[in-house]
Design a protein around this nucleic acid. Sequence first.
DNA 1: CACCAGCTATTGAGATATAT
DNA 2: ATATATCTCAATAGCTGGTG
Length: 259
Amino acid sequence: MLYRTFLFLPGVSEKTEFYLWQEGVTHWWKLLETKSLPGVSSGRLYFWQQKLRHVIPFEDNLSFLAQILPKRHHWRLYEKFKNKALFLDIETDGLKKGHNQVTVLGLFDGKNYQAFIAGENLEEGLELLAEASLVITFGGSFFDIPFLKSLYPWLPDPKVHLDLCPLLKRLGFKGGLKRIEKILGLSRPGEVDGLDGFEAVKLWWRWQRRHDAKALEKLVLYNREDVINLKYLAEITYNGLKHLTLTRHVPALTVSSGG
DNA sequence: CACCAGCTATTGAGATATAT
DNA sequence: ATATATCTCAATAGCTGGTG
């Protein structure tokens, strides 16, 4: 999707980009080859080609691309940069930002999962997070990231943050993570099946007050499922949005003739 | 339960291409 | 030149919904 994206050209939004695709200009190098294009003056075409030539040298530079691309379309960067993705989900001892603490920070780089526990090695995880360039969450834009930043203001913003929650909503998948997983046929191990966020809070209490190692173990297992499933969801989200973008019809030319 | 980013719809100004 | 139609883009406001 990155190489067929033209939204960073001045005066190009979704409509014009879709028009370009229809005219056969389906990736960057085809635009450079194009001699003329109906509806686009040669001056403008030349201007676009110059702009594009200035972007191509940065094709591997995630933060540069994120800067020139509207946030709404950052998901297009996933395919090329997913090897740098860090999937994130936190557990806390309550919802109230500023009063509650992070209990478990779960990170998944696509291969390995790691849980960082409050009172043990949480800081280690925070440092890992601070270095991440592409962070992927479910609901992280209104929960995980603000929550973390309120407790640890020194944390830098990730260069790109993909929140799957609003993205999946665009595809028609409404509801919480568990509900969406169920619709998509993802199942969870029996031990943590049916667990919800509030029970994650209670598991932490049990670990704190009674030093019940089983409770912590279960909490981490729960977090692990949350985080690892994010990768599945990210793939589904990317493919879905790609399909939607490529097949969307331009809704302009419909003129009703009475009735 | 408190919170708040992202979504949607709307508006209006400014560009741009094309036909006459 | 003029008129028209289409599109971009920024600003605004209100709303929705999912997080442990």
